[in-house]
Computed example of a mutant assay.
Amino acid sequence: MYFAPTMPPFLDLIIPLVSGYLAPILILVLFIALGFIFKFLMESYLMHLAKKTETPVDDIFIASFGRPITYLFIIAGVSIALQLMPIPWEIKKIIIPAVFVLAVIIIAHAVTKFFIGVFRYYSYRNESLKGVAPLVQRMFQFLIYFLALIFIFDFFGVSITPLLTTLGIAGIAVAFALQETLSNLFAGIYIMADRPIRVGDFVRLESGDEGYVEDISWRSTRIRLLSDDLIIIPNSKLANSVLHNYSLPSKRSAIIVPVGVSYGSDLAKVEDITLKVARDIMAKFGVEGEPLLRYKEFGESSINFIVRIPVPSYPEHYKIVHEFIKELHTTYAREGIEIPFPQRVVWMKRGE
C-alpha cells in the first residue's frame, strides 16, 4: 500500500511566502550591489582620471553625483521590488510615491551641488563674480528645488497651471509693491558684478563727500568718511550717480597744487626751488616718482602755475600737501620770492 508524502502545515505557509518575496529581495540586493560597485568605480577609477585633467568640473561632477547615484540604484531596486512583492496595493500606493519624491529630492540636491560648485570655482577665479556669488547660488538653488516641486506635483496629478498663474499674478503685485527694493537689488548685483567700486576703495560722491567703501550689500552701500561718519546710499542711487574712484585702476595717484608768485619773480628760480621742495617732501614720505611744474596763466595779481606731486594713495595727499605748503612758504620767504595778495592797480585821472 502506497502513502503519498504530506508536507507539514507550516511549510504550506512558508513556501508561497518565500516564492513571492525571494525574487524581489534578490532584485533589491542586486541593485544595492550595483550601486556600491558604481560608487567604487567613480571614487577610484573615474576620480583618478579626473585628477589628470586641467578643469575641475569633472572632479566637481564626481563629488556631486557619486553618492546620489548609489542612492538612486537603491531606490530603483526598492521600487522594482515593491512592484513584484505580494503586498496589498494600499501599502504600495503609499510607499511608491514616497520613493519617487525621495528620488526627485536626491537628484535636485545633486544638480544643485554640481552647479553651485562650478559657479563657486569660477567666481573665485573672476573678481567680478565674487560679490554676486552668494546671491546667485541662492537663486539657483531656489530655482532647482522649485522645478523639483513642479515634478512632484505633476506626479501626483496636481495641475500646476493654476499655481503658475497665481504665482505670476502674485509676482506682479509683489514687483509693484517692492519696486524700490527690487531696484536696489538689481543695482547691487550690477555693482558687485561690474565692480566700479570695491570694498576698501576711496571714492568721492557727487555731493563732494569722500571716504572708504566699507560694505556693499544687496540693498545699499556704506561709505566711511574721513570724519569717521557713515553714509548709507541706496544702490539704485549709487548706480545712477557719477562718482570718482581714486583706487582704480590703481591706488597710486597724484595731486595738483595751485601756486602763484609775483610778476617780479625769477621764474626759472621759482621752478627750481619749487621742484626741490616737492622732491624733499616726497623723499620724507618715501614717495617714488618725479614732481612736475607747469606755468598756467597770467593772473590779475600773480603768475599762476600748478605743481603735480605723486602720492601713494589719494587719502595720503592731505598730509603731503600740508607739509609741502608749509615748507614752500618758508623757502619762498627765505629766498625772497613773493606770494602776492590779490591786488588791483587803479589809475585816477585828475580833472583839469
Rank of each mutant, 00 (worst) to 15 (best):
Y2V: 09
A4I: 02
P5Y: 04
L13N: 07
I15G: 10
L17V: 06
G20I: 03
Y21Q: 05
L26E: 10
L26D: 05
A33N: 02
L34W: 08
M42C: 07
P68S: 11
T70R: 00
S79D: 09
E90L: 12
P97H: 08
V104R: 00
F114K: 06
R120F: 06
N126I: 12
G131F: 13
R138T: 14
R138S: 14
F142M: 11
F155R: 11
G157M: 04
F176K: 04
E180L: 07
L182K: 09
R198H: 05
G200C: 10
D201H: 13
V203R: 00
S207A: 11
G211D: 08
V213H: 01
S217D: 12
R222G: 03
L226F: 11
D229M: 07
S236R: 14
G260L: 01
D266M: 08
I273F: 00
L292S: 03
L293A: 05
L293T: 01
E300W: 04
N304F: 11
R308H: 01
P310S: 07
S313L: 12
S313V: 06
I320T: 03
V321T: 15
H322S: 10
E323Q: 15
H329L: 05
E335F: 03
I337M: 01
F341D: 14
V345R: 15
R350M: 11
